[in-house]
Design a protein around this nucleic acid. Sequence first.
DNA 1: TTAATGCTTCGCTCAACGACGAAGCGTCCG
DNA 2: CGGACGCTTCGTCGTTGAGCGAAGCATTAA
Lengths: 239, 239
Amino acid sequence: MTIDSGGMAAVAALIGDTARARMLDALSDGRALTAGELAFTASVTPSTASAHLARLLDGGLLAVLRQGRHRYYRLASPRVADMIEQIMLVAAVDGPPRYRPRSSRDDDFAMARSCYDHLAGRLGVAIADAMLRGDYLMLDDDAGAITSKGAHFLTEFGVDTTLTGRRVFCRPCVDRTERRPHLAGVLGAKLACRCFELGWVQRLHDSRTLKVTDAGRNGLRETFGIEFAGLAKPDKIAA
Amino acid sequence: MTIDSGGMAAVAALIGDTARARMLDALSDGRALTAGELAFTASVTPSTASAHLARLLDGGLLAVLRQGRHRYYRLASPRVADMIEQIMLVAAVDGPPRYRPRSSRDDDFAMARSCYDHLAGRLGVAIADAMLRGDYLMLDDDAGAITSKGAHFLTEFGVDTTLTGRRVFCRPCVDRTERRPHLAGVLGAKLACRCFELGWVQRLHDSRTLKVTDAGRNGLRETFGIEFAGLAKPDKIAA
DNA sequence: TTAATGCTTCGCTCAACGACGAAGCGTCCG
DNA sequence: CGGACGCTTCGTCGTTGAGCGAAGCATTAA
């Protein structure tokens, strides 16, 4: 009735199909995947996947890059990733409880993952909590900011906090599995980037799931005072 | 493939129907509307609307309040409103250009509207801009914060900025029509609330569209240095 | 050139869902 | 107590679109 509920319906209808939702989810860490990989991820045949990808492309949610005989698809913009995360959050919190068989993959995913360009899951929340405890950071569901103490700390850690002058660049992102805010925005991205640089975390089996290395566990303990091993679930060995 | 792309698909499928999208849009200012009003808004018969509302309710997007022979439906939570706004934004910016006949209602909507609980449209952006110019506020697409000067200014204006101690409560919200951030979060809500109190703005014809009163125009000029009349479109008289 | 690979297009089937009107069930008013 | 009203439930129809396999186009490898 107002300015563009039709456009909203069109976009939502694109996401509202299981196969396409799976594709978008797989792409929501910002990487580009080939049509074949996406077909496999969505558990459909290449022909079906192709039709879905064409619609997503046409709807402006994806962009494509041709490289040889491959076509690499990626999200059209970070906005799309934000939207996906937001819908995921609503689905997880407001939606009806879903009976889902828990797999060890899910546990790993809940433990540590990337959320477009920053860290999420128990790891992301633990880092945010540690920074809150140390008075490095202020954060709630709505907004965030770093303290001067935090700016100093982050500079020492190897994250540039000065670049944008008056620009504030710290944003909360409500964690889908933890249901509490973690650190996002430009600062969250830089922090995640630094953790990758230091070898603290690695991408796992071509997904958004992350593995915390031994170096990472040490670093988290020494720098942030986080005992990440202690956060592991006991049943993690199973399966 | 990860934790809940199925849930996301279910939620998105609910929004991905024109009639339901219109209903959600109509509800996204936070008010509660009856089934009949929503049927009218969505241009469907009561029976069709009832089916849609049942599905939205079942999917956890709406809540209902029975009162006499009426049933008042409202969004289940502010999260849902955020999600809707985010999808609208993606639809407006990333989606394919939509040929839509512009009506004067659309112009009014783009001029001043509420966005769940804060001000949006040209009005919302103008206020944010004025506060940026006066160094009351820092704001970009990702995050926001008020300056101490801004806190002082807002206190004088009649907005309590002290309530939450360490809590930061200023958040940007990318405007759908202006495509630039305006002020949201707790602070945005309080500011909007104060503007209603002062009689600067009024709700127009049962929608999210707002009318800026003469008092509002004066107040905006004197307090914020905004010439809001000058922002009006010349064709506003038509129809 | 020929063959294999990656992806798309085409033609088809089948299930899901949105739309309506009619009828049913509560609630309020005369 | 009727009767009007608000909303929901039921039955039916028509359209949409998701899925597949086969065939068609590219591009790379042999």
